[in-house]
């Protein structure tokens, strides 16, 4: 446990364990940027009025809704289960409605393609 903030130490999630090849980079700054980017992306994907995911001190994610109901989750992978519990919805990236909404927001053709 951190003596200053009380945050519990936790095992890094695999998405947090990318070793950047920038030895001169500010590790803490990169971490903050990465967390902010994760939160922004998750909120865009959720895309529902009143649902919000926030980063808390780089330690955990806090999910909350308009009624004040909230849940703390330790890592990105656990966000999806918490969202489903709190909002009775399904988090599926293959959901055609979700993909269509994201495509509509972007209005761009994608880049990955299957090999032959």
């Amino acid at each position: 446990m951190c003596a200053l903030c009380g945050g519990l130490e936790r095992e890094p999630h695999w998405t947090d364990r990318l070793q950047r090849d920038d030895p001169d980079g500010d590790g803490a700054a990169l971490w903050r940027q990465s967390r902010e980017a994760q939160v922004a992306l998750v909120n865009r994907i959720l895309g529902q009025d009143g649902l919000e995911v926030r980063d808390w001190n780089g330690h955990v994610f806090v999910l909350s809704n308009r009624t004040g109901r909230s849940e703390i989750v330790p890592q990105l992978a656990a966000v999806w289960s918490a969202v489903e519990r709190l909002w009775q919805c399904r988090c599926d990236p293959l959901d055609p409605a979700l993909v269509a909404r994201l495509e509509q927001e972007d209005g761009l053709e994608g880049e990955p393609r299957r090999g032959t």
Binding site: T15, L41, C91, L94, R113, R114
Partner: peptide
């Protein structure tokens, strides 16, 4: 087996968000 090729550099955050969500659901 499904093989995907991406020509441009991937954004690690977006990829991680996608894969964690995929593994959560499937």
């Amino acid at each position: 087996a499904v093989s995907l090729t991406v020509d441009l550099p991937l954004d690690w955050t977006a990829f991680g968000v996608w894969l964690t969500m995929l593994l959560h659901a499937h």
